[in-house]
C-alpha cells in the first residue's frame, strides 16, 4: 500500500468530513441556542437537495443558482417551523420536541415522495467542473466545492456567534432568555433568526451535496444520524465543535472502511462516539 493511496483516503475523508460539518452546523446552532434537537434536520437537507435538482431540471442552473435559492427556501422553512411549531412545543417537556419534529420529519419526507416521486435523482457529474490531480492525489470538483464551502460557512457561523453584536445577543438569549428580555433583547426574534441561519446553512449543504450524491425522499434519514453523532460529539452548541467532529468522523470513517472493512466503519464511529461521551460527556468542544 502506497503512501499516496493512504493520503488519498485521508483527503477524501477530510472532504467528506467538511460536508458532514456543513450539514451538521445548522443542527448544532439550534441545539445550542434552544436545547432543541430537530429530528427533521435530515429532511431539511433533503429539501435542499431537491431544490438543486429542481433548479437544474427546470432552469438548467448549477450550484451557483441553486445554492442561494436553497439557502433562502430552507431558511424560510426554518422560520416557519419555528413560529408554527417549535415555539409552542418548547413549552412542553423535552419529549414534545422529539414528537413534534419527528412528525414534521415524516410529513416532509413523505410529502417529498408525493411531490417528487420515489425515483432516485442525480445531477450530471460534470456540473461542477472535472476532477484534477494534485501531488498524485485526485480531487473531484464537486466534492472540493462542497468541502470548501462547508469550511467557510461553518467558520463564518462561528464568527457571527462569537464576534458580532447580533451573535452576543443570540448567545444571551440562549443563556438566559428572561435576563436577555430585561436587557431589551427579544428572545423570539433571536430564536427565529437562529432558525433562519440554521436553515440557510442546511439548504446550502443540501444543494452542494446533491452535486455528488443521489437525491431521494428517504435520503435525509441516512444523513440525519451522521448529523446527530457529529453534533453530539462536537459538543452541544459549538459550531467549531461540529467542524472538528465532522472532520474527525470523515477521516475515521474513510480510514476504517479502507483498512478494516466498510461494514465496520459505522461500528467504529458509533463506538468511538460512545467512548468519547464516556470520558467527555460534554463532547469534544462543549463547555461544561
Amino acid at each position: 500500500m502506497t503512501t499516496t493511496l493512504l493520503l488519498q483516503v485521508v483527503v477524501s475523508g477530510l472532504l467528506l468530513g467538511a460536508v458532514y460539518a456543513l450539514f451538521s452546523s445548522g443542527l448544532s446552532l439550534i441545539w445550542g441556542m434552544m436545547n432543541v434537537v430537530n429530528f427533521a434536520h435530515g429532511e431539511f437537507v433533503m429539501l435542499g437537495m431537491y431544490t438543486a435538482v429542481v433548479v437544474w431540471t427546470a432552469l438548467g442552473g448549477g450550484p451557483w443558482a441553486s445554492v442561494p435559492i436553497a439557502a433562502i427556501l430552507i431558511a424560510t422553512l426554518g422560520v416557519l417551523a419555528y413560529f408554527l411549531l417549535v415555539r409552542h412545543i418548547m413549552r412542553g417537556p423535552m419529549l414534545a420536541q422529539i414528537l413534534g419534529t419527528f412528525g414534521l420529519a415524516l410529513f416532509l419526507r413523505y410529502g417529498a415522495l408525493w411531490v417528487f416521486g420515489a425515483n432516485f435523482k442525480t445531477l450530471p457529474d460534470d456540473l461542477v467542473g472535472h476532477s484534477f490531480i494534485l501531488g498524485g492525489i485526485r480531487f473531484e470538483g464537486s466534492r472540493v466545492l462542497a468541502g470548501v464551502v462547508g469550511l467557510v460557512v461553518t467558520v463564518l457561523l462561528h464568527l457571527l456567534l462569537t464576534r458580532t453584536s447580533i451573535g452576543s445577543r443570540m448567545l444571551a438569549v440562549s443563556e438566559d432568555a428572561t435576563a436577555a428580555q430585561l436587557m431589551g433583547i427579544r428572545p423570539q426574534r433571536m430564536q427565529a433568526l437562529a432558525w433562519a441561519l440554521a436553515g440557510a446553512a442546511t439548504g446550502i449543504a443540501g444543494a452542494l451535496i446533491a452535486t455528488f450524491f443521489y437525491t431521494s425522499p428517504t435520503v435525509g434519514e441516512t444523513l440525519a444520524i451522521v448529523a446527530f453523532v457529529t453534533v453530539a460529539l462536537g459538543g452541544f452548541g459549538s459550531v467549531m465543535g461540529a467542524l472538528v467532529a465532522g472532520l474527525l468522523i470523515g477521516v475515521v470513517e474513510s480510514l476504517s472502511a479502507f483498512l478494516i472493512g466498510p461494514v465496520y466503519k459505522d461500528v467504529i464511529v458509533y463506538a468511538a462516539f460512545v467512548l468519547v461521551l464516556w470520558f467527555r460527556p460534554q463532547g469534544l468542544m462543549g463547555t461544561n
Binding site: L84, L85, H88, I89, R91, G92, P93, A96, L99, G100, F102, G103, L104, A105, L106, F107, L108, R109, Y110, G111, L113, W114, A118, P217
Partner: peptide
C-alpha cells in the same frame, strides 16, 4: 403508492405536539 399515509400520520403527530405538548 404516494406515501400519503405517512403525510397524514406525520401531520397528526405535529398537530398533537403543537397543541398538547404534554
Amino acid at each position: 403508492g404516494a406515501g400519503i399515509t405517512f403525510v397524514v400520520y406525520g401531520a397528526i403527530i405535529v398537530i398533537i405536539a403543537r397543541f398538547l405538548p404534554s
